[in-house]
Design a binder for these strands. Structure first.
Lengths: 161, 161
DNA sequence: TTAAATCCTAGTAATTTAGTCGGGTATAAA
DNA sequence: TTTATACCCGACTAAATTACTAGGATTTAA
C-alpha cells in the first residue's frame, strides 16, 4: 500500500462523487472544475476505478459516473489500491526467492507494515468522510464558487447575443 | 507521510543497523552486501538520516554508523520522514489559500489521513522489529551467507599467493 | 604515510506522475 | 436522423522522483 498523490487524487474524486451522489450521474468535467484535476487525468483514473467496479458509468448526454456501491461500503484503501496497481513491490513477486532469501528481510517487513496501513485505511469509508463537518463545509464552498462561475459565464453569453 | 520504496530502503538499512548495534560502528559496505542496496545510494540515504540525528557516523578506518538513539526510541515513521523530505504536498504549503480554498478538501482530508498513518507508524520502533522472530531468522541467514562469501574470497586470495 | 571509511557533488537512466492530444463510441434529446 | 454530450481509448510528453554511478575530498586508525 503506497501512499502517493495519485491515490489522493483518486480519493478526492471519489469523495466528490460521494458528496453529489443524490444528483444523478456526475460528469468528470464537474469534478475537474471543483477539484482542480485535469479532465484527461480523471478519465484515466476512472478507467481504473471502473475496472475495479468502484464506479459505474453512464454514457451519452446527461451521463457521468455513479459510485459502484454506497459510500459506506467503499473504503479509502480500495480506492488507493485501484489506481496504484501494485508495481510488483521490487523484483521477487512475493515468491521470496529473490537473492537467496536476502531481500526477504525487507520484503516481509514491508509487506507487514503496509498490510497494517491497508487495514487501517480499510476501516475508513467514503461514507465516514462525507459525514465530516470540515469536508461538508469545504464542499459547500466549492459548490457556491462553481455556481458563481456558471452565472458569470451565462451573463457573458447573454450580453454577446 | 508517503509510503514508497525509498522509505523502505531506509527502514531496512536502519533495521540492519539495529540488528548489529552490538558490533561497533557498522560499515555501509556491509549493509550494502547484506541488504542488496547500492553503496552510493546508501550514502545518500544516510546523509539524510544523519541530518535528522537518527544515526551517528564514525569516520576513518574501522568507522561506520551507529544508531543515533537506542532502537526502542526510533520509530519507523521518523525514518521514513527523514528520507522523504516532505515535498510540499501539492502547491499551497499548508496555508490553505490555494485556489480560493478549493484544494483544501483534498488538503485537509489527506493531511488527516497521512497524520493517522504517521501516528500508527510512530508506535512501531526499530526495537519492536528487532524482537520479531521472522526478522531475526532472516537476519541470521543473511549473516551466514555473507560469512560464506567472505570465506570464499579468502580462499581465492590464499590460492593466488 | 597509507588505506579505510565517511562525506560531498554532479550526473544519469529508469520509472512514475500528471497531463495533453486526437481521436473514437454510445446515447439522450432536438 | 442528426447533433451534441459525455464516456472511452491509446499514444505521446514533460516534470518529478527513484535508484544508481562516478569521482573525488576528508578524516583517522594503523
Amino acid at each position: 500500500m503506497r501512499l502517493t498523490t495519485k491515490g489522493r487524487y483518486a480519493v478526492t474524486a471519489m469523495l466528490d462523487l460521494a458528496l453529489h451522489h443524490d444528483q444523478g450521474p456526475i460528469r468528470l468535467a464537474g469534478i475537474s472544475d471543483r477539484q482542480g484535476i485535469s479532465l484527461s487525468y480523471l478519465e484515466q483514473l476512472f478507467a481504473q476505478l471502473r475496472r475495479q467496479d468502484l464506479v459505474k458509468s453512464v454514457r451519452g448526454p446527461g451521463g457521468g459516473y455513479h459510485l459502484g456501491r454506497h459510500a459506506g461500503a467503499i473504503s479509502v484503501a480500495e480506492v488507493i489500491a485501484a489506481v496504484n496497481e501494485d508495481t510488483d513491490t521490487t523484483r521477487c513477486g512475493g515468491s521470496g526467492d529473490c537473492q537467496e532469501g536476502e531481500t526477504c528481510l525487507t520484503h516481509h517487513l514491508w509487506m507487514d507494515l503496509s498490510d497494517q496501513v491497508r487495514e487501517f485505511l480499510q476501516n475508513i469509508s467514503l461514507g465516514d468522510l462525507v459525514q465530516r463537518q470540515d469536508i461538508r463545509r469545504v464542499s459547500q464552498k466549492q459548490e457556491r464558487r462553481t455556481k458563481d462561475q456558471e452565472r458569470k459565464v451565462d451573463q457573458i453569453l447573454a450580453s454577446n447575443l
